[in-house]
Nucleic acid binder design. Structure first.
Length: 427
RNA sequence: GGAGGAGUGGCCGAGUGGACGAAGGCAGCGGUCUUGAAAACCGCAGCGCGAAAGCGCCGGGGGUUCGAAUCCCUCCUCCUCCGCCA
């Protein structure tokens, strides 16, 4: 959530960032409306507080007054104050509800260093790493490899669950499971602490990480209870410390979690339906960090390199993309994607997204820390970051397509062999 | 799912309508003492909004009252017993 104080103190700056950097006139208008409501709220609050002060001191007098008649008179005097307060409180509650509704819809402000651009076409390729595989034959797409090896069953996936579902079988299922274990182990060595969170969370959590209120159409939810299926481990893991004040020496907190992720992908009907690039359910290993504000820029670089380490060790060719302002996600102030090249589908596949959210999520979820022991060291909001390390299906695609052999088998990347009982080929 | 009990500050815990933002203890911070530390003693000390005065916050929400941690309603969570279950 955007800090109402920043909006109040530097309104023209915020508006021009929304208009000229994010190209989001709607956000600028919401911000202007929020500004007016914030002013209204402050006026109401002051009026209500003055009356409450009056009531509080009168109530004390009444408590001390022994004379029944005087007492009755004082009480009678306060009756009108009571209803006045109720009136202000009602208006105040209404104004605050409206204001919150607006603030929750305002996107984060980009870091000053993020290049301005309108769409993904203006994203910047920061660098390319790794060597592309060369083939003496035309590389096949993973759906052909998977079907001929009997390790991916698309038809039965569709039969039991519908479009955008598939079954991993035999070595396919084992490969994915091996990848999950191995990825987590790599991140443990990088200093992360593993957590296994719920895959279903309360609605409040989705507000904390900012999937709600704006992006509800991509979420699955229980029809009769307050449960949402997580679209990413970011949601349960970030909310771990919701409404908490952490001690300074607990930071930075770095977690790695495996979860299944559930997304409706409603808008993309027909697109990416072939193969396992975009399913309604997919596995992901996710890193989440909670850091001091002054450390978050550096933490993003570390997070990115922690994710890259996976692709390096798998010896897959990839590139690092910096999102321009227009392609930044709603909550992020800075974001990098990792894309792995996959020769069968002949495209760069997004396997990781690493973002710094600044205090945007922390403000929504009220995740704070105490900078020092002194009483003047008031609790401050932490900065949160997360990055995939990595998304499983697309990593499996890249392995199958890059490591495919002329004879139709797939070579197992060296680092994975211990996790696949020493096996060198899938055939 | 049924029956009963309970939710108070970082933690434990007192408080059943009036000076309670909340006794006491532990933990924390500052000081005295000490070569240093511990102990002992003294003091400070919750969170939010606000420039401040002040206002709000005793699981969440609502109500009664001049006044609610305290009374009422409702929801949530935890504990005990029973039922069911991987």
């Amino acid at each position: 959530m955007l800090d109402a104080k920043i909006l109040r103190e530097r309104p023209s700056e915020v508006l021009s960032i929304y208009r000229e950097r994010l190209f989001d006139d709607a956000a600028a208008e919401l911000a202007q409306a929020a500004l007016a409501l914030d002013d209204k709220r402050r006026n109401l609050l002051q009026a209500a507080d003055e009356l409450k002060n009056k009531r509080n001191s009168a109530s004390q007098l009444i408590g001390r007054e022994k004379d029944a008649e005087k007492r009755a008179a004082l009480i009678k005097d306060m009756e009108s104050v009571k209803s006045e307060i109720a009136g202000y409180d009602a208006q105040l509650a209404e104004t605050e509800t409206e204001l919150d509704k607006l603030l929750l819809q305002l996107p984060n402000l980009p870091d000053p260093e993020v290049p301005t651009g309108k769409s993904d076409s203006e994203n910047k390729v920061v660098r390319e790493e790794g060597k592309q595989f060369s083939f003496t034959f035309t590389p096949k797409p993973h759906w052909e490899i998977g079907e001929s090896l009997g390790i991916i069953d698309f038809e039965r996936g569709v039969k039991i669950s519908g479009s955008r579902f598939y079954i991993l079988k035999g070595a396919g299922a084992q490969l994915q499971r091996a990848l999950i274990s191995w990825m987590i182990d790599v991140h443990l060595d990088q200093g992360y602490t593993e957590v296994y969170p719920p895959f279903m969370v309360k609605e409040l959590c989705l507000y904390g990480t900012a999937q709600l209120p704006k992006f509800g159409e991509n979420l699955y939810r229980d029809a009769e209870e307050d449960f949402y299926f997580v679209p990413t481990a970011e949601v349960p893991v970030t909310n771990l410390y919701r409404d908490e004040i952490l001690e300074n020496d607990q930071l930075p907190l770095r977690h790695v979690a495996y979860t299944a992720c559930f997304r409706r992908e409603k808008m993309a009907a027909g697109r990416d339906t072939r193969g396992m690039k975009r399913g309604h359910q997919f596995d992901k290993v996710e890193m989440v960090q909670f850091v001091r504000p002054e450390d978050s820029k550096q933490a993003l670089r570390t997070l990115l390199s922690d994710a890259e380490e996976i692709l390096k060790q798998l010896e897959l060719p990839y590139r690092v993309i910096q999102m321009c302002t227009g392609d930044l996600s709603f909550a992020a102030c800075e974001k990098y994607d990792l894309e792995v090249f996959s020769p069968g589908v002949n495209e760069w596949l997004e396997v990781s997204s690493c973002s710094n959210f600044g205090d945007f999520q922390a403000r929504r979820a009220q995740i704070r820390y105490r900078p020092g022991k002194d009483k003047k060291d008031k609790p401050r909001l932490v900065h949160t970051l997360n990055g995939s390390g990595l998304a499983l299906p697309r990593t499996v695609i890249a392995i199958l397509e890059n490591y495919q052999q002329a004879d139709g088998s797939v070579r197992v990347p060296t680092v994975l062999r211990p996790y696949l009982r020493g096996r060198e080929f899938i055939k």
